[in-house]
Design a protein around this nucleic acid. Structure first.
Lengths: 337, 337
DNA sequence: TTGTAGGCGTTATCAG
DNA sequence: CTGATAACGCCTACAA
């Protein structure tokens, strides 16, 4: 039951009584073929079901017109789908395809093993989507001749990097709340193993300190609405808590519910901000102010740099942190005097 | 600035003073190489930065160990990410990679054009993820020697097909509500161009008719919570409406909110059911009964059939509709007497 | 307009 | 244990 080899140029040539070269010309739409010959060839192609061989073509041309993407952990994590969509669209526009692998992180996968796996696939460049810390991140050396972009907030000495600006995200939110007159901002963090969560927490601390405010105790959730509710129930009991920054929208929603259940109004008594702007179409009335990232743009940037012809050797690689936009809704107001 | 060719077996062979064949043996972990020779070769590989060529390998072996996936329209549509994840995981387990392209449907893309594009890429089999009706669906002929799976509810004369069972979904929900004693079930449909929405609507009609119930007027939303709210506001004014089936969870949520705002309690006065079970981790307290599909399983099935060695020729192709599971929560109860 | 020769990187096969 | 040869499908370069 071995799969039969598909028809090759030579097969068509034999069937049409011409040379393989002529068939190649027809396949590539050269105009220097006599119409009748071309017709004969096309006929043979149809009958035998000719399809150009990707392997033969790439071997000859020395490139694949394909970008490789390694997703660490979990394709389904928030934002990944839009990054993937951004990469795919950019690739399509550039006439390229995308080769995707998923890296299991249970065994502390390193960039090196990902690079090895991807490099054996048809790729002219590669993109690593990092959502958790990678081992030996800084020591990693990209493979010669294979441009490699890492999606991460960290700068890398040898590879271009791009990501949502997680630190900036916190600064935007904290500054916004302090500017409104709030004395401090409480924070509900996401899962500890998430880089995004860690950076947002760090940015929250920095932003407060930069304004001379001692960061209040941290609350930790797990991204779920329920964990936000629990955090909110806790915070509702703290009178000086008038502003809460939750690391995603589900937790922000939970916080709001808990506050309401405890008799504290949003935004009159407490302001609440989330991240991702993910509930706008889900909730019938989304009232939660949220910081929205453009993950498609991140994906597009990654693609463009992964397929760049020649990375200017010797320069420091590009590093791009894309700022988010604060979508203002009704969950935020100045504190009551 | 042409990209230099990467080192080949021959280059390594030259550097190590052995034959290309020996280098190949080392690269493939053959045990019939003297350790010292192997060490010498490995050393040369390291210095020259050897990477096996996907093109060379595939050309020789006549296959790619890669499955192609064409996403029509919109990768980011609900469920697609889990299907993608299912395919990717199954592929990884089988030692395969995934080649992904996105098909633009603005120009009424057909299966044929998708097949053509995908078949020029490194694929041993392909999967089409259809979320909107395709032109000439039934006329489509798969390419010889390239197994092709279509993710759709429709049966195809030549290709294996798999999908969530959308008709069955409606029957499950409607029967459940009627069994509880409701006299009829109202339906809030999703976007008109969605196949899933159409089939759920059709299944809803069928299920009611099968039980001798005349389907009440249909309400149409656009998948958003807000559109559900509007439908719910309308339905709240209808006294005989005691059970509502919304085609997704966001609309179900909107329906519940609107009913509450109109003074009708859920589930005491009205029962509400959604589809997808997508809000469990988002809402702090998800009370909405919902039908959950296993999109990862759909993806896995598709992968396995796309990479099947020999589709038994002549047989009717496999057709699999995967049933969903009704996740029962507090939004459903028997009608008040 | 068409055909021939050669080589891209790899591996199966067979010879040493 | 190692090497030589040929072939996979295609395309560039050149020749007819």
């Amino acid at each position: 039951m071995a799969r039969p080899r598909p028809a090759s140029l030579a097969d068509i040539a034999r069937a049409a009584g011409v040379s393989a070269q002529t068939v190649s010309r027809v396949a590539n739409g050269s105009d220097s073929v006599r119409p009748e010959t071309a017709a004969k060839v096309r006929e043979a192609m149809r009958t035998l079901g000719y399809r150009p061989s990707f392997a033969g073509r790439s071997l000859k041309q020395g490139r694949y017109r394909t970008v490789g993407l390694a997703m660490f952990n979990n394709i389904t994590a928030t934002g990944n789908i839009f990054r993937l969509d951004g990469i795919t669209r950019a690739a399509t526009e550039a006439g390229c395809a995308l080769t995707l692998i998923e890296m299991d992180c249970t065994d502390h996968a390193t960039l090196t093993s990902a690079a090895e796996r991807l490099s054996a696939l048809p790729v002219d460049g590669m993109i690593f989507n990092l959502t958790r810390p990678a081992e030996n991140f800084l020591d990693f050396k990209p493979l010669a001749g294979l441009p490699m972009v890492i999606i991460t907030n960290l700068e890398h000495p040898l590879c271009p990097t791009v990501d949502n600006d997680q630190l900036g995200c916190s600064h935007t939110i904290v500054d916004h709340l302090l500017d409104l007159g709030h004395r401090t901002v409480f924070h509900v963090a996401g899962k500890e193993e998430s880089i995004a969560s860690r950076l947002r927490e760090q940015g929250w601390r920095e932003a407060l300190v930069a304004r001379g405010v001692e960061p209040p105790p941290l609350l930790r959730g797990d991204w779920s609405g329920m964990s936000g509710y629990e955090a909110g129930a806790h915070l509702a009991a703290i009178p000086e808590c008038t502003a809460i920054y939750a690391s995603n929208d589900a937790m922000a929603l939970g916080v709001v519910d808990a506050l309401n259940d405890a008799g504290r109004r949003v935004p009159e008594d407490v302001s609440v901000v989330g991240v991702d702007d993910s509930l706008a179409t889900v909730l019938p009335h989304d009232r939660i102010t949220s910081l929205r990232f453009d993950n498609r743009a991140v994906g597009r940037w990654a693609f463009e740099h992964a397929m760049a012809e020649a990375a200017p050797q010797g320069d420091t690689p590009a590093h791009c942190l894309m700022p988010g936009t604060l979508i203002q809704r009704e969950s935020v107001a100045p504190p009551a005097r």
